[in-house]
Amino acid sequence: MTNAAHATALTKVYGSGDTRVTALDSVDVEIETGRFTAIMGPSGSGKSTLMHCLAGLDFISDGRVWIGDVELSGLSDKNLTKLRRDAVGFVFQAFNLVPTLTALENITLPLDIAGRKPDQAWLDTVIDTVGLRDRLKHRPSELSGGQQQRVACARALASRPTIVFADEPTGNLDSRSGAEVLGFLRRSVDEFGQTIVMVTHDPGAASYADRVLFLADGRIVDEMHGPTADLVLERMKAFEAGRS
């Protein structure tokens, strides 16, 4: 099995001296192609930092990171930007959409920026999968939170990226909308072979993944395959107990 992304001895340090925080402490991680990976851990454990470093949004302090075959360290801002545009999709917790653009324009934004024509058949497939065909002309302010996140998911997939990163994509949603978004992410893995990395602290959300990585104090402390909500919750409780 190939890796869509992997990192070795990934270390990220914020600040210096008294305010020095080691957010990631020599992390080795492999994200397998065509699978849905969840990253779990308590607040402040380094989940977002790990995602940002893997996605080329943040510079790393030490170690090495690859997306596909491309190593990120040493890439200029220009090349990193191009890599994000062409090979990475993003879904953030909030503020995912440009308010002046319609839903459709938001979906095709990375392609438009690159000056590329979208693959119409693929675009139709993605739009139908997220079920937004009748909302394409709407502005984000005219969409519900769930619909907005589904537009964000569609955007992340539209350019057929190597890998999609989602940081707490359901954090701001009610459980029904959350389930719709998670269901959609799951289907894109099953039906289109998309690689997805999702950061979450919700065991229910993690149960949609194929594999869960557990993060604590900047280290990967455990890993679970074929998770269920109950199993994940139990494992989390065990950590909490172990820490205290």
Partner: peptide
């Protein structure tokens, strides 16, 4: 600034 950040994250270059 958040919007600009989002644009940058999804691949808009600085010159753009």
């Amino acid at each position: 600034r958040r919007e600009v950040g989002l644009l940058r994250a999804v691949g808009t270059s600085r010159p753009q």
